[in-house]
Computed example of a mutant assay.
Amino acid sequence: MNRRKALKIGVGLTSIATLGATIKPWFTKNLPLDSRVFSDMKDLLAELAETIIPETDTPGAKLAGVADYLLLVINDCFTIKEQRIFYQGLTVVEKMAVEKFGQSFVCCDAKIREELLTILENDDGHYQGLLYKIKRKLWGRSFLDLLKEHVVEGYCTSEAGATKGLAYQAIPMKYEGCITIGPDQKAWATR
């Protein structure tokens, strides 16, 4: 084999290897995450939901089964991009809890959990108005936005949340578009 042919083969193999290394992240980035990834984090999801809607005189998110709802929504309704954002957010929460307090988020008490979520919200909340819209368009919704929206949605559509956390009226008598709510009155659960 002469030198020119050996150089062509070497350049060709190098080009193929470089192209493969360049394309592989694109393919793996666009593959959905395995549903077991989030199933393994069910306890973390339940504690995050309970931190957002804690149990008081009404049932909390854990009792309402919001973690099961979140798993269903993540696996069946989220885009691949949202799944990846959510997974990264969950790992960041767990990592922050271990680094700052030396224990898993699930093992932390309610005050520490609130503090961690407040830190995340402050880190995420410095975008306002147009900057927020641009950020959301380029990088998608943040982990905390997705979490809060779906925790509230899961709670309000659960039986415990709709009947005990909200004022449930199975058959509304008449439509009133704007009514005054009393000081201790719950919001309505009918749609």
Results as ranks from 00 to 15, higher is better:
R84P: 07
T118E: 13
G129S: 06
G89I: 04
F86R: 00
G65C: 09
F78Q: 01
P183L: 11
C156D: 04
C178Q: 10
A187T: 08
S142V: 02
K95H: 09
S35P: 13
D109Y: 02
I74Y: 06
M96R: 12
R84K: 13
R141C: 00
I53S: 03
K174Y: 05
A6D: 10
A64E: 05
A162T: 08
G182F: 03
G177H: 04
V98T: 09
E82L: 04
K133Y: 10
G10M: 15
A64D: 04
V92A: 15
A61Q: 01
K42A: 14
Y175C: 07
G129M: 08
E114P: 03
V11E: 05
L72A: 11
E50P: 00
Q185N: 12
T22H: 06
E115A: 05
P183Y: 09
P54C: 03
K164T: 10
K24W: 12
S158P: 00
Y132A: 13
L72Y: 11
E115S: 11
E50I: 01
E121M: 09
V92D: 13
V73T: 15
R113N: 02
C108Q: 10
S39R: 15
E99F: 04
L70K: 08
G89T: 08
K24F: 12
R113K: 14
R191H: 11
A97Q: 02
H150V: 02
L31P: 09
L31T: 09
K5R: 15
V66A: 12
I85N: 07
E121A: 09
K81N: 03
I16K: 09
A67K: 05
R191Q: 10
D123C: 07
G60P: 01
T28D: 06
F86D: 05
K42E: 13
R4L: 12
E55H: 14
A46Y: 01
K111F: 06
C107H: 11
G10T: 14
A97P: 06
L63F: 08
P183S: 12
S142K: 01
E114F: 07
Y168D: 14
E82R: 04
G102L: 02
W188N: 12
E82C: 01
K95M: 06
S15A: 15
A162H: 01
D68M: 08
R3T: 07
T14N: 03
D40P: 00
P183E: 13
K42C: 08
L144T: 04
M1T: 11
G102S: 11
F143L: 02
F143A: 01
Y132G: 05
A64V: 09
S158I: 03
D145N: 09
S142E: 02
D109N: 05
D123Y: 06
Q88K: 14
T14W: 09
S35G: 10
K42I: 14
E149H: 11
L72V: 03
T56G: 13
L144W: 01
I80T: 12
L71E: 13
N75S: 11
V66T: 12
I85R: 07
I134L: 15
K100Y: 03
L48F: 05
Y132K: 15
K42N: 14
V66F: 02
L144P: 00
S158G: 00
